[in-house]
Design a protein around this nucleic acid. Structure first.
Lengths: 203, 203
DNA sequence: GAGGGAATTCAACAATAGGTGAATTCAACG
DNA sequence: CGTTGAATTCACCTATTGTTGAATTCCCTC
């Protein structure tokens, strides 16, 4: 309280702006995650943030750039995934499953991931984001493991992750949607381990 | 040619109508599959079918019912899947993979499947279609195999199939998108076999 | 308390969408 | 030929959306 005396309120970003931007960002993430790029409207986001629609575009320029800003992955997750290769090789599948499910269970990161996946169906830019994450970040993990055909393995892992998120959170297929996180990790771990270090059919 | 003398042209459905309905159906499937429910417009479908937009709604009533009509699965596929349990148990994963990939490679059925999956992100009815297919049709297969936790197994299988379709055809992640069908079956078979008849972590 | 600049709102535009109802073409039949 | 009924088109309405530019409020500084 008494933020009115905040000394940073001079020329830089002031609490007012920061706070409003934050509110818009959070609301936009939630709506993009729940409705996808097309159905999430600037008006809806503005209302959810308690703000005029014009203010949203005033801060973010356009719906397109708003989406891009808001669905950026926090820095470090890519490295976290890639460095799973440093641990014991025989448990890399399980550890990857743990990281993925944890990200999906945390509401903040879940909104970012679901916004991307849900929007990928109709919004080419969102599809590109998903594609890059698999082709770059997951690929780094596979490459670090020194296995054959790392690209194919990365995409199989990616499709498993995307499929799980899609089925559990977007389609809501039961009982997968209600399964607790630990059980889901148990089910996913062997599959990911197989894709990462096992034999894959292709020659 | 000379369809003008067709005797069925009396009171029942005439070639003219049938032909036009068919053209609209095909165009609608393609556009729903390529763009999803929201971005596929009645106008676009009508143009693709070489027809006036009003004719589309004249025949199908509304965009909603058009979508429902056009994304119906051909009768028999549900049974085909369920009866995979009749064959040798140790190859059920591979045979399911073959059926699924074949359906996705055939342009006609692919459009139906992709229209459903792509629209599921933003259109609740489409999500319900996907959900039902997994919770009913795939579940029947699992149940016919007499394994424990058939529901969990069905959803894991479903998420694998949906994830593969999503990654390969919608996101277009490489090299998965360019992989030939046989190689894809090879990669998927062990996973599906594991989910259907193997140990799954959950107690 | 007056000035100024940012934060915020208001009103409106142009584009696009699904849907409707009247009008029109068309082909078969008496 | 002229009627009939379906097939098809036309013009139009309403709702929504992204976006814009002017107006207004707000808060700090002098």
């Amino acid at each position: 309280m008494d933020s009115s005396r905040d000394p940073t309120r001079r020329s830089g970003r002031r609490p007012g702006q920061t706070q409003t931007r934050e509110a818009i960002t959070t609301a936009a993430r939630r709506l993009f995650a729940e409705a996808g790029y097309d159905r999430a409207t600037i008006r809806g986001i503005a209302t959810a943030a308690g703000v005029d629609p014009a203010l949203v575009v005033h801060y973010f320029g356009s719906k397109e750039t708003l989406f891009r800003e808001v669905t950026k992955l926090p820095p470090g997750v890519a490295d976290t995934i890639a460095h799973l290769a440093d641990g014991p090789r025989e448990s890399v599948g399980r550890r990857l499953a743990e990281v993925v499910i944890a990200s999906l269970e945390n509401p903040a990161s879940r909104d970012i991931i679901l916004a991307r996946i849900r929007s990928a169906s109709t919004h080419p830019d969102a599809a590109a984001l998903v594609r890059q994450t698999v082709e770059q970040d997951v690929l780094r993990l596979a490459a670090n493991l020194d296995v054959d055909q790392p690209e194919v393995r990365a995409t199989l892992v990616g499709s498993t992750i995307v499929g799980t998120a899609f089925a559990r959170y977007i389609v809501g297929v039961e009982p997968l949607a209600s399964l607790d996180a630990a059980a889901l990790v148990d089910a996913l771990a062997p599959t990911l381990q197989q894709y990462l270090t096992g034999e894959i059919g292709v020659a």
